[in-house]
Design a binder for these strands. Structure first.
Lengths: 206, 206
DNA sequence: AAACCAAGTTTCCTTTAGGAAACTTATTTC
DNA sequence: GAAATAAGTTTCCTAAAGGAAACTTGGTTT
């Protein structure tokens, strides 16, 4: 294939209707970040979007320019809104913003161990990302390795009892009302101690 | 060429089962409207965007699904921003946005007295500051000025019911499980709706 | 009405996107 | 440490997008 650098020379998108070039959008990179943030493999993303694994790979590496159709599958499948996708990170006015998420009405991202409910999804370019999550009972068996990512995390137990495992510390049990604040680069994971599912609130910031 | 009506029935993309139309974006129609609104012919639009006249025609009539590349040329050439293009519902604006996910009503008996419990005090230089607070029920006479400070704030109601007042919005009632994310530079304050104290969790980040 | 012209459409062909499967690269397991 | 597994990339092919030019449509002039 030809040199793709030449094919996508600038990729410039302006969010406001300005004439100046602000920040070139690296669509592939952005998408890869989002997919990773959701903890999805290419295969899982493929199933969610209906796009082939190979296609996703090529889009992420900017070897192809996805069609509008493909982008729709992407955004609906991964539950991301397009403005968010295209929003330039810099120069975004964040004053006077507000987003209310009613109980149980966030964006849900179920996994084997958790059921994440993403809150405040209407706002992009946030400093924090709040979640409400269900930790399934006896979930410890399913997990093999530490979770590790950039930023810091705050966690509060809303219901039930969990065990908080972390790389450099002994496991601790947390009950309703207990909270923990930690560096997310340190390996960490959760398990529901009791037979019931536990509910937690957590907030990340990078 | 084959019947394109069958190829793009309504631009409805659903990942799993495709029974219902969720948010069909009629991209072509939208684009045609925009071009017309700008008073441009296909030829003129072609010159501005660098896309062939024929290609534009096909896009507008939804005979083809433009690539991301083509859409970039379109948006930059015609000076339209993509969020605007894709915004199916009302305006998704950067500033002064609001999204109430669910509606609930209660009667105002607002007050302003808190009892803050600072969490995670062992750590300094945190990106976030989490609190757990009581919102006491008091009289509306205690109304004072807006609270205003740098950064962003996330708030979740743990118990009870509060009214969240903010400078640019109507007050909203939040019940247990509801949450709100907002820019703290926007004036804001809380009040407990019922006679009982309410309990909230909130996290700030600058 | 014919002749003209301008805007938009379709045809035909080349280039590129998208998918299946083969291949590579870690990473784990026995 | 070879085999197995899993995530990601590349190859190869087909289906679809993009462009040049021919064609159609609608409006205007004479």
């Amino acid at each position: 294939m030809t040199d793709q650098q030449d094919v996508y020379p600038s990729m410039t998108i302006s969010t406001e209707q300005s004439t100046e070039n602000i920040a070139p959008i690296k669509l592939g990179e952005r998408l890869k970040d989002i997919r990773r943030a959701l903890g999805l493999t290419l295969e899982e993303a493929s199933q969610k979007t209906g796009l082939a694994r190979s296609t996703l790979s090529k889009i992420e590496n900017e070897q192809i320019s996805p069609t509008f159709q493909a982008m729709q599958k992407l955004t609906t499948g991964l539950d991301i809104n397009i403005p968010q996708l295209f929003a330039t990170p810099k120069k975004v006015n964040t004053t006077g913003r507000r987003d209310i998420t009613r109980n149980e009405l966030g964006k849900s991202h179920p996994t084997l161990t958790y059921e994440h409910e993403l809150l405040a999804t209407q706002l992009s370019n946030k400093k924090m990302m709040p979640f409400k999550s269900l930790v399934r009972a006896r979930s410890f068996d399913d997990y093999s390795d530490w979770i590790r990512h950039d930023g810091e995390e705050f966690l509060l137990v809303l219901k039930g009892e969990i065990t908080f495992f972390s790389e450099y510390y002994e496991p601790v049990n947390l009950v309703e009302g207990d909270s923990v604040y930690y560096d997310a680069n340190m390996g960490h994971m959760l398990a529901s101690v009791s037979e019931d599912d536990a509910q937690i609130l957590w907030v990340t910031a990078s």
